[in-house]
Amino acid sequence: MAEIKEKICDYLFNVSDSSALNLAKNIGLTKARDINAVLIDMERQGDVYRQGTTPPIWHLTDK
């Protein structure tokens, strides 16, 4: 899980924002549900936040 978090942070640092599906595909996974639990956990920790569009767009925080 730590490896996936690191990949998410690296990708969002370079791209600035992404949907869960696009993010999953760009870090080597196939479906948004493969990454949603990790994104929600990271959101609780304050590492990422989502804009409430459908589907949500994920961003890194300034943390």
Rank of each mutant, 00 (worst) to 15 (best):
M1T: 13
M1E: 15
M1W: 13
A2G: 13
E3Q: 07
E3L: 03
E3K: 10
E3V: 05
E3G: 10
E3T: 10
E3W: 11
I4G: 05
I4Y: 06
K5S: 05
K5G: 03
K5N: 03
K5Q: 08
E6I: 00
K7T: 00
K7I: 01
I8S: 08
I8L: 00
I8C: 00
I8N: 04
C9V: 15
D10T: 10
D10A: 12
D10E: 13
Y11G: 06
Y11L: 06
L12M: 01
L12G: 05
F13Y: 14
F13S: 15
F13Q: 15
N14Q: 13
N14V: 08
V15D: 05
V15I: 10
V15W: 10
S16L: 04
S16Y: 02
S16E: 10
S16W: 04
D17T: 04
S18L: 01
S18V: 02
S19T: 09
A20E: 10
A20N: 05
A20S: 09
A20G: 05
L21H: 12
L21T: 14
N22R: 02
N22W: 03
L23Y: 02
L23P: 08
L23E: 07
A24H: 04
A24E: 05
A24W: 02
A24G: 04
A24K: 03
K25Q: 12
K25D: 11
N26D: 04
N26Q: 13
I27N: 04
I27M: 07
I27V: 10
I27C: 06
G28N: 05
G28E: 10
L29C: 11
L29A: 11
L29Q: 12
L29F: 11
T30L: 08
K31N: 14
K31E: 15
A32Q: 12
A32L: 15
A32V: 14
A32M: 14
R33I: 15
D34I: 06
D34L: 05
I35P: 09
I35T: 09
I35M: 04
I35C: 07
N36Q: 10
N36A: 04
A37H: 13
L39Q: 09
I40N: 13
I40Q: 14
I40A: 14
M42K: 08
M42R: 03
M42Q: 07
M42I: 00
M42V: 01
E43D: 02
E43R: 00
E43W: 01
Q45A: 14
G46Q: 02
G46I: 00
D47I: 15
D47L: 15
D47K: 13
V48K: 02
V48C: 06
Y49F: 10
Q51P: 01
Q51T: 15
G52V: 02
G52I: 01
T53I: 01
T53N: 11
T54G: 08
P55Y: 04
I57Y: 01
W58K: 08
H59D: 07
H59M: 09
H59L: 03
H59K: 15
L60P: 03
T61C: 08
T61V: 10
T61L: 01
T61Y: 00
T61E: 05
D62T: 11
D62V: 07
D62A: 13
D62L: 05
K63T: 08
K63C: 09
K63S: 07
